[in-house]
Simulated scan of single mutants.
Amino acid sequence: MIARVRRLAPLLRQRSVARFTLLLGILALFGLTVLLLPQPDLADAPRLVDRLGPLAPPAAILLGALMMVVLVPRTLVSFAWGALFGTVGGASYALGAALIAAALGFAVGRTLGRDFVAERVRGRLARLDGWFARQSVLGVVTVRLLPVGGFGLISYGYGTTGARVRPFLVGSVLASVPSAFGYAAMGAAVASPGDINWFAIAPAGLGLVASTIIVTKWRRSRRAALAAASA
């Protein structure tokens, strides 16, 4: 049995390398697609929304999720949906899309990249991977609020770690609330100048305050941990 496992180990490592290479290729393709494709003309979008009727909200959620999966910035989706559906509707549909996109990105990253990363983490990287595995919702919110990458890219990256699914998804949505309402309100203001519902964008202001507090506490705890380690 042990001899068989030893014979299979190189094959399993080769497969993990192939899957990880495929993941990198997919991300590179998505990135090039976003950079090279021309910007869509949204002039006919309101008429399309009217024609879809009650199907417009689920279509917006699914399309927004697809856009985020291929690495279109989430803020652009929130802005566009705010212009089409108003502040509350646009932000809500953008958040629904973010939840689906986060789940898909995480699943792809876990399937294609987790084995490769788990086989190679050593030392500090192993401790970092353990930190991701122990992360709470607050930890995910903190990482999401840091300027370390786009929404889709972070989702794929989280899948390659030992992070748990539920805290990741809940934290991803909570961290998206401030900018979803803020950019949706901006989109709605562009579509209907002078018609801004300030109560609707209140979550953006509250979320900004909460984000500032979270990031400040994270930086203080990190400085304390570094000081304790160097002492």
Rank of each mutant, 00 (worst) to 15 (best):
R7Q: 13
L11E: 04
R13G: 11
Q14P: 00
V17G: 00
F20R: 06
F20V: 07
T21D: 02
L22G: 07
L24T: 12
G31N: 09
L37P: 01
P40R: 09
P40G: 10
D41Q: 07
A43N: 12
A45R: 05
A45N: 03
R47Q: 14
G64F: 03
A80N: 08
A83V: 07
L84P: 00
L84V: 03
T87A: 04
T87S: 13
A91S: 09
A103W: 15
A107I: 09
V108F: 01
T111F: 06
D115K: 09
F116R: 01
R120T: 08
V121S: 08
R122Y: 06
R122I: 10
A126L: 15
L128M: 15
R134L: 12
V137C: 03
T142I: 13
T142G: 15
V143Q: 12
R144C: 09
R144I: 07
P147N: 11
G149Y: 12
G150A: 05
I154W: 01
I154L: 15
Y158I: 11
T160R: 09
T161L: 12
T161V: 11
R164V: 00
F168Y: 14
F168S: 00
L169G: 07
G171Q: 00
S172P: 05
S172Q: 00
A175I: 03
S179R: 11
Y183N: 15
A189H: 11
V190E: 12
G194H: 07
W198D: 10
F199E: 03
G205D: 05
G207H: 04
A210R: 09
V215S: 04
V215P: 01
R219G: 03
L226V: 15
S230G: 02
A231D: 13
